[in-house]
Computed example of a mutant assay.
Amino acid sequence: MGFLDIDGLGKAHYHEYGTGSKPMLAFHGYGMTGRQFHVLEKSILQDHHIYGFDHFFHGESKLNGWTEQQILTGMPRDLVKAYAEEWFKQHGRQRFSVMGYSIGANLALILAEEYPDLIDEVILMAPDGLAVYKGFDILMNRPWGRYMFKVVTKSKWLAPTLLKNLKRVNFIDQSLYTIAYNEIDTEQKRLDVYYTLNLIRLLKPDTNKIASLINTHNIKCTLIFGKHDNLFPKKAALPFIGSVQNAKVHEVDMGHWLVTKQLDEYLVNLPQ
């Protein structure tokens, strides 16, 4: 493991694992750390050496000198490029791949957009960033939504009540409910949710440009969706899927919680 000292941002902590030799920069989902992908040991980790980054407000990554107002304004997307530039300083400028799950897909996609001539492969699982997600758009970009998000963060009972209602209408499943509830049961955890989503609010990949670059540079692209995922379903990503040539698209019999040994078994047993 190690740290990237990113000027104007802070220390981005990363975990290293995998038995393969191909470098892959990986970005996890909310509430996890850069170790999240270690369960894919029979499939992806056989070919790749993972550099899995902790998001800020997760694991050991720490912002340096950021005020609350800066966090709420959001991290400029050019700082995502700084991840790669600092990584190059440590490991040499070289070809690499990217992987992202859920909100982590935004960072993976931006790196693919910025370094198409160096990217070998893009792997996205239950990805945010391929379509506008109305719920996040309201919370992050609409004045009334941002106000509501702040109020819910400060309240001890509003967030749990909202989660229960989302589960009741099958917007989220039991596994996602359990994970989410465990991330909002204290004021500090609710603040971490609030700060995390605000920090990444400006990290919007240009999906039309990325699809074109994937095609032009013949970048291998694998997209994995949960059949029962109501958060980032396959149907929302169909325009992107239709514009990428030769993308490998999988819809597995799972919900949003994809990065598991079950997915590892699915991937390792795919026909060659």
Rank of each mutant, 00 (worst) to 15 (best):
D137R: 05
D137A: 14
I138E: 13
L139V: 06
M140G: 03
N141Q: 08
N141P: 02
R142A: 12
R142I: 00
P143Y: 09
P143Q: 10
P143A: 07
P143F: 10
W144Q: 12
G145I: 09
G145F: 07
G145D: 05
Y147N: 01
M148H: 04
M148W: 12
F149C: 01
K150P: 01
V152G: 10
T153N: 07
T153M: 13
K154T: 00
S155V: 00
S155C: 08
S155W: 06
S155H: 05
K156N: 09
W157I: 15
L158S: 03
L158V: 07
L158H: 05
T161I: 07
T161E: 09
T161C: 09
T161H: 11
L162C: 00
K164T: 07
K164Q: 12
N165Y: 13
L166M: 14
K167P: 02
R168T: 02
R168F: 10
R168N: 09
N170M: 12
F171K: 13
F171S: 08
I172Q: 07
I172A: 08
D173Q: 01
S175M: 05
L176T: 03
Y177K: 06
Y177D: 06
T178K: 04
I179R: 12
A180H: 05
N182V: 05
N182A: 15
E183P: 03
E183F: 15
I184V: 13
I184N: 02
D185H: 09
T186R: 00
E187R: 03
E187T: 01
E187D: 08
K189F: 04
K189E: 09
L191I: 03
L191R: 00
V193W: 15
Y194S: 02
Y194C: 02
Y195C: 05
Y195K: 10
T196V: 05
T196I: 05
T196G: 03
N198A: 08
N198I: 04
N198W: 06
I200Y: 12
R201S: 10
R201H: 01
R201Q: 12
L202E: 14
L202A: 06
L202V: 02
L203V: 04
L203C: 03
L203S: 02
P205W: 14
P205S: 14
D206P: 00
T207M: 10
T207Q: 11
N208M: 01
N208A: 10
K209F: 11
I210E: 11
I210M: 14
I210S: 10
A211E: 10
L213G: 01
L213D: 08
I214S: 03
I214W: 03
N215L: 03
T216A: 15
T216Q: 15
H217Y: 15
H217S: 07
N218L: 13
K220C: 07
